[in-house]
Design a protein around this nucleic acid. Sequence first.
DNA 1: AACACGGGGGT
DNA 2: ACCCCAGTGTT
Length: 348
Amino acid sequence: MTFSREILGWYRRNKRSLPWRNTRDPYKIWLSEIMLQQTRVAQGLPYYQKFVERFPKVEDLANASEEEVLKLWQGLGYYSRARNLHAAAKTVAYGHQGRFPDTYDGLLKLPGVGDYTASAIASICFDRPEPVVDGNVYRVLSRFFGVTQPINATGGVKYFKTLAREVMDGDHIRDYNQGIMEFGAVQCTPKSPDCGVCPLRSGCVALQKNTIDSLPVKLAKTKVKTLYFNYLVPVSPEGKTWLRQRTGKGIWRNLWEFPLVETPKEALIDEVRGGLADFPQLGNAVNVYRYNENPIVHKLSHRHLHTVFWVVETHDGFEGGVSFDEADKYPVPVLIAEFLKTFKNSYF
DNA sequence: AACACGGGGGT
DNA sequence: ACCCCAGTGTT
């Protein structure tokens, strides 16, 4: 029994029922693949349902505003995926007459579609014999074949791609690719895989050598930095506030937030008062006070954001003010969304 | 080659 | 606290 036959057999017996498993529509497959980049199925699933309902066809997505796309994406993270999704939808709808490319090379040209996603769409929708190599595949291959090359070094990436191509079943690529990923997600898990009932146990090098827990090998990632965020929460006499859109290329690009004062360490109230000068709309502040006693530590994969919200009550209204209910219509980071929820309940 | 980019869930 | 997740794009 070959590796690929075992994978196909296991997949037939164990595959989960997922909405994108019942279609070859490249729009739906593409949508699911973008959403599942660095994202668990359980987290992406409700977003997939929302997007398919609101945007049944790629033209619907192409014709939406970026604001709406980001709002629907809110909470899923890695927001460049949403911006690229929107851009790619426009390309497909208006540059390719609504048809997705049906080759690896063609798909790879779409923004947000890299090696993995191009291979996934080409194989699942068009039966192209392209191997997928995602986090699951790295784990399964490294363990079964006992590969100790780091999965996140240039040489390792090439090695695993070549190995994946050698052991795939090009005649059943659609099920094989989904099968090896599903096998990694369900059976060959990162922690405590149940090797006792694994159909591949007799041929698994790592199991034989007792190296399951040390595979795959991964180079250390860069360490987390701590940043100090001070959000100024304007409140006018009419109870309105003020949001602005983030620009540039850092985190949360194009999402909305309160005026932000970033400091090298935790700020004192006088520093925050000084920061008001950067925002002319807040020049008539009559009262500034700290909202949360202890900083909220919002954890991203590469940043810890120590955040304090400062309520800034003004004497007059300001240009561009919105009510706190209207604020919920804007795409905002989870950090801001959670603040809005508690603040509305406590302040008013 | 190294880093930026979110948020949630498991251990 | 650390790891991982159906990775991609930029520097």
